[in-house]
């Protein structure tokens, strides 16, 4: 590896390290992780409801839903906050007056925030995994005693879901960073970022319409095609219950395709952010 590239990696690593240390100290992060953990643990209370084999699915959906929702908010707010903190506090002035490239700055910010999102998602998914595993053990005993078929639970599936969710939060962080690089205020970045996340959640509608309605006009089709290419489909990452409780229902290659798509979107969005930030006046 050339020396210039090594130096570049070192600078990015240091910016991400400081971003991580700053983000992890935020009260907002502590608040969301405690709230989400409380939500996941509270799902244990569903054991008192007799859902039979559907109980685990309910607990999983509840837990994954909470992690998905609060994780999205965290990715949205934390990314915009970490970016604008540097601009508004003018630490970006001292940073970018050093031999630090603007793209290095953005990648450092992204990596730092993504690491914090990793702490969030791995902590909560581990907690949810423990809750599911504990209840699963009890349900297996009950099923064996009553001669019923015990429910499935895949620990590997929970891990795969965790990685997919981390990737999804990475895509959201990259989307918000792309918006922030042109936004003039934190509020604008959060609002527009939230809209793009919502658009990503609903992108599948355009995708389905494109596949289903063959009688659409050329312009309509072109519009839908453009939407499906420009906006990442965030729904493709939401296969937590299938991965965890019924891994056989997951299509072969779905995880790989989602991972590849997530990775490509992160790279493309970071490049867009880099291009927009290149000429920004600090």
């Amino acid at each position: 590896m050339p020396d210039s590239m090594k130096s570049s990696f070192r600078r990015v690593a240091w910016i991400s390290r400081i971003t991580f240390l700053e983000a992890i100290r935020q009260r907002f992060f502590a608040f969301l992780i405690v709230l989400s953990a409380a939500l996941v643990i509270s799902s244990v209370s569903f054991r008192f409801m007799d859902f039979g084999h559907g109980e685990l699915k309910f607990v999983a959906d509840f837990g994954f839903g909470g992690i998905f929702f609060f994780g999205s908010i965290l990715a949205l707010v934390m990314t915009a906050q970490m970016f604008f903190a540097e601009i508004e506090n003018r630490t970006a002035l001292t940073l970018l007056a050093k031999p630090v490239g603007r793209f290095e700055f953005l990648v450092g910010k992204f990596a730092g925030v993504w690491a914090v999102l990793g702490v969030f998602i791995f902590t909560l998914c581990t907690l949810l995994g423990l809750v599911l595993w504990g209840r699963h053990q009890e349900l297996v005993q009950i099923a064996e005693a009553s001669g019923r078929v015990p429910p499935d639970l895949s620990v590997g599936g929970i891990f795969a879901y965790t990685l997919l969710q981390w990737l999804r939060l990475g895509v959201i962080a990259a989307m918000v960073l792309a918006v922030s690089s042109v936004a003039r205020s934190f509020l604008f970045a959060v609002v527009v970022g939230a809209m793009t996340v919502l658009a990503g959640q609903l992108q599948w509608i355009a995708q389905e319409a494109l596949l289903r309605d063959k009688e659409l006009g050329v312009l309509h089709q072109a519009f839908l095609w453009l939407i499906t290419r420009l906006i990442p489909n965030l729904q493709q990452f939401n296969i937590g219950d299938a991965l965890t409780l019924d891994v056989t229902s997951v299509q072969v290659g779905a995880i790989g395709a989602a991972s590849l798509s997530g990775g490509v979107y992160i790279i493309v969005l970071m490049c867009i952010a880099g291009l927009a930030f290149r000429r920004r006046e600090i």
Partner: peptide, 12 residues
């Protein structure tokens, strides 16, 4: 470069 009224990460 030292900017006017510099601000740095307080936790460091």
């Amino acid at each position: 470069f030292l900017p006017e009224a510099p601000y740095f990460h307080k936790f460091l």
